[in-house]
């Protein structure tokens, strides 16, 4: 189990900054540009860690502690989604609640550290983040419930076990809303624009405005680990484990996670960012799809 935990953490730490690079490269492709290198985020992190942090005089210890807490709690969440199947993984009753609550903890600190700076922009960003995550949470749990219903257990492992090629219809109805939640949780278009410089419209980025140096690096790294985690869950939903040997499955996962990033980049390129008023509607649609899947799973229509 220790091996698996170590592997999960290592993969998240090492590979996660790659995803942002792939997304940006994809977007550059659609925009007809060359774009920054795929490894840009690694360079950025390296650069930021060597810089000193400037801390606002109005900020308290919360602001200073937040990056570390955010980083560690996000990283801790990754151990529940094992990278390699077959090996024993930490699993217990209702561990999915812990997973999403760890992410919730990091979000909580992100929000209060933003509020701690006393900037009006960051306050706005924090309030938006709180509002939209409250809308995204039920969708997440409905999709997990759908999977659990099929798997017949109460842990994340059971949830993934329940999916098989037989239940492809549920897989679609789970993966699509979860993908939308991923876009919302990771501040992607159409929910948020990670590339914008306009403080008034930002959600996630605006909360990081006062961070610099290593603190900013930790925040950015935590964000990419979160993206990695969500992409990994999507891959696990789409690729039921039973079909392949563990080795082949691991290999496929390594290919599939970047594919999710490419899809994300494509979505970002063909869509405009939605008005903030429309964001609840988008999450609502995701919820509707998730509920449709849930209803279908209730009645085991697959047997028809």
């Amino acid at each position: 189990m220790i091996i698996n935990i170590c592997l999960s953490i290592a993969a998240a730490l090492v590979l996660s900054p790659l995803l942002g690079g792939i997304i940006n490269k994809t977007k550059a492709f659609y925009a007809g540009r060359k774009g920054s290198p795929v490894l840009q985020l690694y360079f950025d992190l390296f650069k930021l860690f060597r810089k000193e942090s400037v801390i606002s005089t109005s900020a308290t210890f919360i602001f200073q502690a937040a990056p570390a807490i955010i980083f560690t709690s996000t990283l801790a969440a990754t151990i529940f989604v094992p990278f390699i199947p077959g090996l024993p993984a930490p699993s217990f009753t209702c561990d999915f609640i812990l997973l999403f609550y760890l992410l919730g903890l990091s979000r909580f600190f992100l929000i209060i550290s933003a509020l701690d700076t006393g900037s009006s922009f960051e306050g706005m960003g924090a309030s938006r983040e709180a509002f939209f995550s409250a809308l995204a949470e039920p969708v997440t749990f409905v999709t997990i419930l759908t999977m659990l219903r099929l798997g017949g257990g109460t842990s994340i492992q059971a949830a993934f076990r329940g999916l098989s090629s037989e239940s492809w219809i549920i897989i679609i109805l789970t993966a699509v809303p979860f993908f939308i939640v991923m876009l919302a949780e990771n501040a992607r278009i159409p929910f948020d624009d990670p590339n914008t410089h306009l403080e008034l419209t930002m959600i996630h980025e605006v909360m990081l405005l006062d961070n610099s140096g290593a603190n900013l690096a930790l925040m950015e790294w935590a964000a990419s680990i979160k993206l990695w985690l969500f992409s990994l869950i999507i891959v696990k939903i789409l690729l039921p484990a039973e079909i392949l040997t563990p080795a082949a499955y691991t290999g496929l996962t390594i290919l599939a996670v970047p594919a999710v990033a490419v899809i994300t980049g494509t979505v970002e390129s063909v869509m405009a960012r939605a008005s903030l008023l429309k964001v609840p509607q988008l999450l609502f649609s995701a919820g509707i799809i998730a509920f449709l899947g849930f209803f279908l799973s209730l009645n085991q229509f697959l047997g028809w």
Partner: peptide, 13 residues
């Protein structure tokens, strides 16, 4: 305008 709403193709072209 396209850039402001995160619609990259038009923005860069």
């Amino acid at each position: 305008l396209a850039g402001d709403i995160g619609y990259l193709p038009t923005s860069s072209y």
